[in-house]
């Protein structure tokens, strides 16, 4: 198609909830972008894309999927880990393998374990409008929380457990309630002005952590320190 920015939407073995949520805004998306996806029938990982939106976790024991992912990384300018599984592992971090007919599929991880990821978007699944809004911000090069989504790509897990450990138990929670309203399984509830985690409901989607004003601060600052350390290391010749 002429001149439109091309995007690829590709699932690596998630539940399909993320690509289907994107598809619900397909008419709007297609007006702005040249969309390629399996649900439309024109996904081709051999060609070049401006943006690749990957959903689903990567199975570290499946060579086929790892190769596909690497190929997509090579063929796309910007790679976005979309949804909880792709960005922070989500429910699939609990996988332990051993199941018929492929007991060899044992370990799953966010895709940032295998390739460099530009932006990581948690959400199980993110709402349909999310992608349009995000791509708009990336394209204009600025936006309120792009730093945050960049920072998330440095993590290999984020969940209500981290929220408890880093914010609530350390006493820096202010009790704003943002996390409670951000949990898709209602795993967080307010007890005397502080959130508490109902552990058996947490599916490790990470949404609460990126919505917490305190945790986002920590994520971004740590990411900056990390980047600085990386730069220093490269100056002294390390990798």
């Amino acid at each position: 198609m002429s001149g439109k920015t091309s995007i690829l939407i590709y699932d690596l073995g998630g539940c399909e909830g993320c690509p289907l949520s994107i598809m619900r805004s397909y008419p709007r998306l297609a007006r702005i972008y040249d969309v390629h996806a399996k649900c439309i029938g024109n996904a081709d990982i051999e060609r070049q894309y401006n943006y690749a939106i990957i959903t689903g976790p990567i199975c570290l024991n499946s060579q086929r999927h790892i190769e596909e992912l690497k190929k997509i990384r090579k063929n796309s300018k910007i790679l976005i880990a979309y949804g909880s599984c792709a960005s922070v592992g989500g429910i699939i971090l609990y996988a332990r393998g051993g199941q018929e007919p492929r007991p060899d599929h044992r370990v799953y991880a966010p895709i940032s374990k295998i390739v460099r990821v530009d932006f990581s978007i948690p959400g199980c699944p993110p709402a349909p409008q999310m992608l349009i809004s995000l791509l708009g911000c990336i394209r204009s090069g600025r936006g309120y929380f792009l730093d945050l989504f960049k920072a998330v790509s440095a993590y290999s897990k984020l969940s209500g457990f981290d929220l408890m450990d880093e914010v609530v138990l350390t006493g820096i929670c202010v009790g704003c309630g943002a996390c409670v309203l951000s949990c898709p399984t209602n795993a967080l509830h307010m007890v005397d002005g502080r959130p508490d985690l109902i552990v058996e409901k947490c599916i490790r989607c990470g949404t609460c952590t990126v919505r917490c004003p305190r945790f986002t601060q920590i994520l971004i600052q740590r990411y900056k320190l990390r980047e600085r350390a990386k730069m220093l290391a490269s100056l002294v010749g390390g990798e």
């Binding site: 199975c59 429910i91 699939i92 393998g97 199941q99 007919p101 492929r102 399984t185 058996e200 599916i203």
Partner: peptide, 20 residues
């Protein structure tokens, strides 16, 4: 890939199973 949900819920609280 096979994610293995029957194995994922093993040992867990039933409440987790429904959400999982």
């Amino acid at each position: 890939p096979v994610r293995g949900f029957e194995r994922i819920v093993k040992g867990k609280n039933p409440v987790f199973a429904v959400n999982a």
